[in-house]
Design a protein around this nucleic acid. Structure first.
Lengths: 209, 209, 209, 209
DNA sequence: GATGAATGAGCGTTCATTCAT
DNA sequence: GATGAATGAACGCTCATTCAT
């Protein structure tokens, strides 16, 4: 069997995706160019195009990989309570973001949209992940962990958007945050999320008492 | 004064910036091209370059415009309490976002950084706005409206990042939200923010009671 | 009579030509741009185009002015011997070159050619100047001042080309020459010219003796 | 070795440089455009940019090529006397000029300067060639072949500038010179050079005798 | 008569993608 | 199967020239 070859190929492909993800994080979609990628991986451009039919497909597969990882993480947490799972998930994303290991932020909305439209299997993964998170949210709402007045999709998106706090476009000029500061920030964000979505607390009253 | 000509010019320039902002939102920085912009505004490319010395300067001015609007909004609220001001500001940003009138989210981190570096007056506006918000946050913390344990910059960035909830890269595939839904979402987000940053509420206890 | 207006116009035109000549010397034809010229002269571009129908016509007229000056210089010398006149002319050109007051060198051969073709009155001046110099050369040859074996046109061109010694494209990297050095160089070049074109001297023999 | 591919590439690159040199001569730097060049060579523009990183680098390499040829020529003559070497060199340059195979004259001083500054290896070649010629001149002066009163750099530049006699900007209108005429002109120029720089001959006296 | 404002045409450069070996 | 070499299509930008006031 040519299984050994096949496996090597898969390994190369995987490695390529990993490098692509790194470059996407470092420079964003627009600045990811196929020449640089091929060179960085150590293969030629035609080979790259044998692995992936186009830049967008490559990016789509890279994203799929990210979604897969997310789903893996979600599965590993299944014994906890829904809110705990969401918290844990958020914490994971924040950590990978603080270590610059997260593309999401870099992805241009329009680019993502156009890619999603053209690569249906990506949509599947995307929707699957959103669905799982959405179900978690609704379970949490049913159990009284999360305020049922908040639309589930808002909570799901909040999980993704809150990452932006760590590196938003307006921060680069700031002094670099120390690891210590980042760790504290992560805790604050997680706290903010939990307290923000938790079951109705009569805000004014609570504070004034 | 023959300011009629001058005024028309300023109007055209303004219109150009507006269209540029729209295109930036719709296609992102990388896909904003000067030909398209010129055509869309109804002027020729050289004219565009008479108005703005380069694409980056154009974008910088567009961003400055956004910051100016933000600062205006902030000034108009000065009689309210710090937290109320922040809430109002967040609400404004969410509204303009829900009407697709906000670039921020679309801006690639790298691109922003490079532009900010080259157009110092943009940095000024950026820092000024952040400073104002930061001071508001700290005042709110001093007055017990906001949890002083959360770093001020985290709260400031939260104000910007929470907008992402309305249009994040993973939502485009969803069915379009109705105006009704969006309005509700905005309220949820504002609530989430306020409750999330408010002074320490022993979370678990509150929920369990 | 509107003569006063007319005179002012001519003065403005003249001034424009002078500035154009300066810019031509400083940046060459390709880098002479009409915006810069207009601004430097202190008039608007449309006005510039009222004075001169096109960039090339402007350059043509500037060149004509140069030729006129040359011819003036030549006329002023008419009482001297032919060779003395040539020497004096060469010296003048070298001086204006050493003071960066000479376009000739900067003019691209092709550009000149295309301009010459389109503006016949320039050809006239060009040919007139060349003719005068050619006649001088031939007179000098008839009088035994210049070696009659050298084609007259070679001598004429030599007068122009020898200027290049002072600023040729390969010299910019050199240390700047002091005024003293330049003055010496000019004398050397004049000497080189005179000795080079003078009546046959059996070279080898002369040296060896 | 599969050097056949490699060799074809080098040939193409070489051909490109050759065509570039021709176009530089025919139209000058400013009018050398990459589209035309690519088409003339029979390759696409991106290919051109794979060969050379920029227009300026291309021109720099073309110039370097010319300097290399000059240096080769100089090396081949090492057994002759210094003045003979200079003469031979001048003759070679005149010949290649009369066959339109020489850029030098066309190069705008400003353009050259900017290119030289940016491509240090070009400066090296330029200085090396000038140095060699300068040393030849000084040797000739030491041996009494060349007038030691003339600064060496003036003689070196004369070698370059005298070429201009064959095609100076004011000649294009002339009737084309026949090959015969050109050959004679070359001899005259060489003679002019030798006699011009040779050891002091009391000019007036010699002529009058 | 003078000008602020506008433009057609072109140039240098880049990038995702494919051909030929 | 892997690659060096090639390319179509854009894009940011500039400049001589003209329109409208």
């Amino acid at each position: 069997m040519a299984g050994i070859r096949e496996r090597q190929l898969q390994k190369r492909k995987q490695e390529t995706l990993d490098v692509a993800l790194r470059l996407l994080m470092e420079h964003g979609y627009a600045n990811l160019n196929m020449d640089e990628l091929a060179e960085e991986v150590g293969i030629s451009k035609p080979t790259l195009y044998q692995y992936f039919n186009s830049k967008d497909e490559l990016v789509a597969q890279a994203m799929v990989r990210v979604f897969e990882k997310m789903e893996e993480h979600l599965s590993e947490l299944s014994e906890k309570s829904p809110l705990e799972q969401l918290e844990h998930f958020l914490r994971l994303m924040l950590k990978s973001r603080s270590e610059k290991r997260n593309i999401m932020a870099q992805m241009d909305v329009e680019v993502m949209h156009s890619i999603v439209q053209r690569y249906p299997y990506m949509t599947e993964h995307l929707l699957a992940t959103r669905l799982k998170l959405g179900q978690l949210v609704m379970k949490a709402q049913a159990q009284g962990e999360i305020n049922p007045a908040i639309p589930a999709w808002v909570v799901v998106n909040a999980v993704f958007s809150l990452q932006g706090i760590l590196h938003n476009p307006f921060m680069k000029t700031d002094p670099q945050r120390s690891d210590q500061e980042l760790a504290e920030a992560i805790e604050s964000i997680v706290h903010l999320f939990k307290q923000g979505v938790c079951n109705e607390i009569p805000l004014q009253t609570t504070i004034l008492n």
